[in-house]
Nucleic acid binder design. Structure first.
Lengths: 335, 335
DNA sequence: CTGAAAGCGCTAACAC
DNA sequence: GTGTTAGCGCTTTCAG
């Protein structure tokens, strides 16, 4: 019934003090309030079930305790792990995370970025891969630039395409190393299960793998950046009759789908075909055969992103490189 | 440099109109603004890179576009899938999700709930399981009650322990059915890998399974509610030498850990031991052997939670039951 | 140490 | 149609 939440004015009245005093007592201002009044205010606040209005506080103070997070799909373990790292780091600093998920539609990025900007968070973390779409990039910048020049901060976890601080994932290097390690195991005929053409992660990992492979040009099949995409891509690869002895799926989820497809077609992994992924998603560490992959420190990346975006701002667009570590497991045995 | 973001006043001045007109042009108020002025305002806004201040808007309007989400661990696929469903549903309604993750420390729930309350969101979704800790429950209520009675809305996805709208997951019924279906397959000596004693999910699923099992009392080993917990619990179960032909892990993650432990000890699943889980986490649908489990419509639950919490509020604490569906797969073949 | 009052950026009566 | 103005709940000078 009580349609209205208790305000600071209510508390002040209840405690018989001024608004200013109530404010000072409830939040550690530099001014000190006499112990007796202090207690009276606190008691009144409790009695009224008072909770400060964060919106009003940020208006008055001119700053918020929010940080925005923009991801492609929060259900994807890649992003949810980063989100977890970020949420923890944010919590340590007393910040709240505003979550936006484009649910796989990169067009939505713009709109959601706008929503995040309106919230006037201290910082915005953009965690999805960039695409090669130049006009989209321009539109993003049109949101980002005014936000930044009015004191907002933005960090991207991706390819360094935006003029903002960036946690640059070394996709290319990781894939290159993976390729050469797999080649060293004795494989000769590689295929790549790629994601959507415009996604830079996909391009970079694909290019890196090709670079790292000593001789043959890998066969490439592209599909969605998901378990189902990997499943379909693998089926198409098998249908094509291409002669292949190992498959690099652009991420673990696709690798998972690929292995499922192999199982369905009675292709033995790794007997008939070796499979490798990228990311090292933790829930996938127990699949059989254990998946060779490139480990990314996802949780830590969440932390790092916040550190970067909240850190010293003297240098303008700062880059921080994140390297992956090749983890060879059962799915790519030595031949 | 420009330390200040453009305000509506700036835009109005730039366009040579009044504040009110600028406001009306930028947001579809019921008042109509003459086309020419309208365009002038829009142009000015673009020129200035204007973005409305959501905080100020909510203050003036007296309502926000926020919904809070409180989870135990956003990296856990159970929660991230619910979060994805919720985020999508929220987006459809033009709402933003504020995410808080207790990171496995239920004590933090209180504090985070307070933070969410301060934000004055339209609604708060509490997605973690309740515990049997009565004093904690009371403290939660102390936060929730004033929020609700001042017009806020709260929905829990869990056991109906809080006096708020609740999406009640039928853990007990699901586990009961699972037990009887597994028993019908010919198993005789069950064990349960449970989670922390105080967590009601764990209690309910355990009790349900025991109820559904026709004869023997299942052996119970408890550990953390995670992959590693399942791993350790299974090792302890095997160490104990208990004679067991099937294991019910209280959730899929624990089941995953349990299977990993079996692999390590050369216990064949399902040859030597059948394993079942609960939740039907999507990334785990491809593990081998395929895991028998109870499927929960997690994404949909996110949607439902928002519907429930935003829906008609005439009836006070409403309950909506979510039933799981037993999915028998390779990990529990007929004997 | 305490109180009065001026905003923070915006919306929504209320006038014209 | 458009403009004026009074708040929304809080912090923070500025006086006392």
């Amino acid at each position: 019934m009580a349609a209205r939440a208790a305000t600071l004015t209510d508390v002040a009245k209840e405690a018989g003090v001024s608004l200013a005093t109530a404010s000072r007592a409830l939040n550690g201002s530099d001014r000190v309030v006499r112990a007796e009044l202090h207690d009276r205010v606190l008691a009144a606040a409790t009695r009224l079930g008072y909770s400060p209005n964060a919106q009003a506080q940020s208006m008055a103070r001119g700053s918020t305790d929010l940080v925005g997070l923009l991801v492609n799909d929060i259900a994807d373990p890649y992003f949810s792990t980063i989100a977890a790292g970020l949420a923890n780091a944010a919590e340590e600093q007393g910040l709240l995370v505003m979550l936006c998920s484009t649910a796989g539609r990169p067009e939505r990025e713009l709109e959601l970025l706008g929503a995040l900007r309106r919230q006037r968070g201290r910082a915005i973390v953009i965690a999805g891969s960039r695409t090669s779409d130049r006009s989209h990039l321009r539109e993003l910048s049109a949101q980002i630039d005014p936000f930044v020049s009015s004191g907002g901060r933005v960090v991207a976890i991706s390819e360094p395409k935006l003029q903002v601080d960036t946690l640059v994932v070394d996709n290319r290097g990781g894939a290159r190393e993976l390729a050469s390690e797999i080649a060293a195991l004795g494989y000769r005929k590689p295929a790549i299960l790629a994601g959507p053409e415009q996604l830079l992660v996909s391009q970079d990992r694909k290019a890196g793998f090709a670079e790292g492979w000593p001789s043959a040009e890998p066969v490439v099949v592209a599909d969605e950046f998901s378990r189902d995409g990997g499943f379909r891509a693998m089926h198409r690869l098998l249908d094509s009759g291409a002669e292949v002895d190992c498959v690099f799926a652009i991420n673990d989820l696709m690798a998972l789908g690929a292995m499922a497809a192999c199982r369905e077609r009675d292709v033995d992994v790794p007997g008939d075909l070796a499979v490798a992924g990228f990311d090292d998603i933790s829930t996938l560490r127990d699949v059989t055969p254990e998946l060779t992959t490139v480990r990314l420190p996802l949780t830590e990346m969440g932390h790092m992103a916040l550190d970067l975006v909240l850190g010293d701002r003297t240098v303008k667009p700062r880059r921080r490189k994140v390297r992956g570590e090749v983890v060879l497991r059962e799915s790519t045995p030595a031949r």
